[in-house]
């Protein structure tokens, strides 16, 4: 019930924002070129969708982020498991995380370009950097706070090391793992769009960031907003819808949230 009312409130609020936007656009306080109306944004969006380039570019962006996240998150889990072996390794890993974690991915771009050139690999590198450290941080925290009793029950029922990791430690630490994934995703998504804007069209594989950059260059404001709309929509779908579904079907179902 409360949830429904919240959702209704949220919808009303968004409708209000859109109305304010529309009124402002039609009042011509700002030049139409800089502040397009919702209709023109919508028609630009439809036009772009029909043309198909924006779909391809969205696909490119998503493909890159998925690739980077899969590599980064698997790496993070391996490193975190390794960090559980001894207190000293744990110390090294934690130190490394505290050095690397505050470094915005996009700040590594010049370095990435030197190492990998201007292209897909540089972007993947930055995405991996964006997801790796927060994932290690959360995974290690998750592992450290596993109730000892689960590990003891695990060894009692005859589980060996690998099974303890995959079947006890990972599900026990799932709430933290999901937090790590979520933080990593939002960092990577921002880094990806920024990086694409900076070196954009290298060959055919450009993404959403480059799309917006290009539209600005051509002074196609409705097009810019159409691009922004897609970025917001994907962010919303992943962060609010997808993660919510994952939580509902795992940790919430299992009573592992407080």
């Amino acid at each position: 019930m409360v949830n429904k009312r919240l959702k209704l409130n949220r919808t009303i609020f968004i409708v209000m924002l859109l109305a304010i936007w529309e009124i402002t656009a039609h009042s011509h306080i700002f030049p139409e070129l800089l502040f397009p109306s919702l209709e023109s944004i919508l028609s630009a969006l439809i036009h772009e969708l029909e043309k198909g380039t924006i779909v391809l570019q969205t696909y490119n962006s998503i493909e890159m982020i998925l690739e980077g996240m899969i590599i980064g998150d698997i790496l993070a889990i391996i490193i975190s498991v390794w960090a559980m072996i001894s207190r000293r390794i744990n110390e090294y890993v934690t130190t490394l995380v505290s050095i690397m974690d505050p470094l915005p991915g996009i700040a590594l771009l010049p370095l990435a370009i030197l190492w990998f050139g201007t292209g897909r690999n540089s972007i993947i590198f930055i995405i991996i950097h964006s997801v790796l450290w927060p994932m290690i941080l959360n995974t290690v925290t998750g592992f450290k706070t596993i109730p000892k009793i689960y590990l003891e029950v695990g060894s009692n029922i005859g589980l060996k090391k690998i099974k303890i990791i995959t079947n006890i430690m990972i599900p026990s630490a799932l709430p933290s793992l999901l937090t790590g994934l979520q933080v990593g995703w939002s960092r990577a998504w921002r880094a990806l769009i920024s990086a694409e804007m900076i070196f954009g069209a290298t060959g055919k594989e450009s993404g959403l960031g480059w799309y917006i950059f290009e539209k600005r260059f051509m002074l196609d404001m409705p097009g810019v907003f159409a691009g922004l709309f897609i970025i917001v929509a994907i962010g919303f779908i992943v962060e609010t819808v997808l993660f919510e579904i994952i939580e509902e079907s795992t940790i919430k179902k299992w009573g592992m949230t407080n």
Partner: peptide
């Protein structure tokens, strides 16, 4: 086989 006092010794998942 050990049975503890703790109510949380079943795997919640």
């Amino acid at each position: 086989m050990m049975v503890f006092q703790d109510f949380n010794q079943l795997f919640p998942w």
